[in-house]
Amino acid sequence: MEPALIFDLVLLLILIGLAWLLLASTDLFRAVVLFIAFGLLLALAWVRLGAPDVALAEAAIGAGITGALLLVGLGRLGSTERCRFSRAPLTFLQRLSAPVLVGVMIPSISLILLLEVHQLAGTTPGRQGLINAFLDVSGSGHGVTAVLLNFRAWDTLLEKGVLLLALITIWSLDQARPLFHQEDISPQLMGLARLLLPLVIVVAGFVLWQGDQAPGGAFQSGALLSAGILLAILVGYSLPQRWQGLSLRLLLAIGFGVFLLIAAATLLYSGYPLQYPEHLAGSLILLIELVATASIAALLAAAVVGGHPPDDLSTPAAKAPSTSGRR
């Protein structure tokens, strides 16, 4: 057996073991920490499979932001003492569906897939050839970026919509509350965070910039920036009241809005949505990436904060930090 294959085998066994452990864990905090570890190891698996873009995104979004969301959410869940329905009996169908699905369907589908998937291993190549053939006119030197922002830009446009929609949903559900109790944070941590902040911004800029030629891009960079914003909130910055209205909403919506405007303009101009004029393709993709990064950073940070800014309602509420004060 080759050493590389052994490495893969060990990595996958650890991943499956982690998944099993975190899903079976009785301690939720432990489960969330294991989930973050799972995400980081998953990023390693993506590197092994030749997908560094996905690895970056997994580490930043899958492990980082999702982990932050889960930790903040866990902290906000109160005690279950008040709950009168914890032992509500399952209905007949619920009791039936779990064993049927788990016992019959999952093994049979898994078995078919496991048996057949290995047949696929040697067959059809992907679309590398086709993509490379068009890469020159796509406005981006990196295959994944070209697919995301040109060949399959329609998906990315709609997915930016999903992101904005998720934030609107969160705002419709709850009002922002403080992320942390300020007194819980030690001065040393504050100092460290202040040191880290500029570093995060520089790294995020680098990741965005190199996305044109190499792994990286708006999502990864936006996720890093949002981590920076969360750090800033941690050390006590907050968005001034007068910027929590339209300016904040503009920042959140500009990524999707500009993309949508470009789609409309190209549709009007050429009859095809998102058909960039060839000499403008590079600049348009850069523009989309820049505004998307700003929006994604703000959206992800606002999602972790988890609610609409207090001035949205007429009732004056406790002052809650919204997104960062740096913009």
Partner: peptide
């Protein structure tokens, strides 16, 4: 006549959604 109206039918409500969020 030459507009691809079926594409506009996706872009318009999405654009309006952004507008209603902003205002």
């Amino acid at each position: 006549v030459q507009q691809n109206w079926f594409v506009w039918m996706t872009l318009l409500p999405l654009g309006a959604a952004v507008a209603t969020f902003l205002a």
